[in-house]
């Protein structure tokens, strides 16, 4: 028996918004410690890694490890039926071929349940090595989304260049060039407004706008985003999900000019 009850059901709705453009389907690996999802987009250029710890749920039971293959467009349709203040429970029997979503309104006057068929997915799991990154940049997530959106008008790629002075985002194309420089913030009233750069060595890498923009669909999950870069390895874009866990996106850098 698997059962996970999330009082802040809106978080699950936001997680769905954050992954559904990138992935058509994904396996939710449910274990005693919580729920994990790892899946690459169709072109294998980017990867989503979602971690929801059991401690984040107000009720969590997982008697046996369970892999639930879900069609994300179907799951998204179902989660759209939940109100933002609904409590959401996911449950499944061992070896079941369906999962049930139960939505409870805060005062319990409306309770809905939706059963969805599971699909068998033969997904490749990748081993992601522990990496000490040369540059770790923290910035407001809305600022990052704005930069990706603005620079996408200029070209297909964004160059992210991190030095001890700060971080520079650049794009170039037919209409011209664009550069956005962010300096580390000295003092801020709110920690979530800070720009922080932890640099061991300067790094400059180029990434496809299309994917960066899809990652920024996670913006509502967290006020801050963390970008980790090292020369010639995939970028990590991480959004914390309150006290529950995180969503990380990996993106292979573009090579060449």
């Amino acid at each position: 028996m698997f059962e996970a009850r999330l009082v802040q059901g809106a978080l699950l709705k936001k997680v769905m918004e954050a992954i559904k453009e990138l992935l058509n389907e994904a396996s939710f690996d449910c274990a005693h410690s919580g729920i994990l999802l790892q899946a690459m987009d169709n072109s294998h250029v980017s990867l989503v890694s979602l971690n929801l710890r059991r401690e984040g749920f107000d009720k969590y039971r997982c008697d046996r490890n369970l892999v639930m293959g879900m069609n994300l467009s179907s799951m998204s349709k179902i989660l759209k039926c939940a109100s933002n203040d609904d409590i959401i429970t996911m449950k499944a029997q061992d070896n079941a071929d369906t999962v049930t979503f139960v939505f409870e309104s805060p005062k319990q006057e409306k309770i809905s349940d939706y059963e969805m068929k599971l699909t068998n997915l033969d997904q490749d799991h990748l081993g992601i090595p522990e990496t000490e990154y040369s540059c770790v940049i923290k910035l407001p997530s809305a600022e990052f989304a704005r930069i990706c959106r603005d620079l996408s008008q200029f070209g297909e790629s964004i160059v992210i260049s991190c030095t001890k002075e700060g971080v520079k985002f650049s794009a170039a194309g037919d209409i011209g060039t664009a550069n956005i420089k962010l300096a580390q913030t000295a003092t801020v009233d709110k920690e979530e407004d800070a720009v922080m750069v932890d640099m061991q060595e300067p790094v400059t890498l180029t990434f496809a706008c299309k994917y960066l923009n899809m990652f920024t669909k996670a913006t509502p999950l967290s006020p801050q985003v963390c970008l980790s870069m090292s020369p010639d390895v995939p970028l990590v874009v991480e959004y914390k999900i309150e006290d529950i866990g995180h969503i990380r996106y990996y993106l292979a850098p573009r090579i060449g000019d």
Partner: peptide, 14 residues
């Protein structure tokens, strides 16, 4: 022109 490698070039299948 730039090329776009896949993640399989960096991470190995488990």
């Amino acid at each position: 022109a730039s090329t776009q490698p896949t993640l399989n070039d960096y991470f190995k299948s488990k």
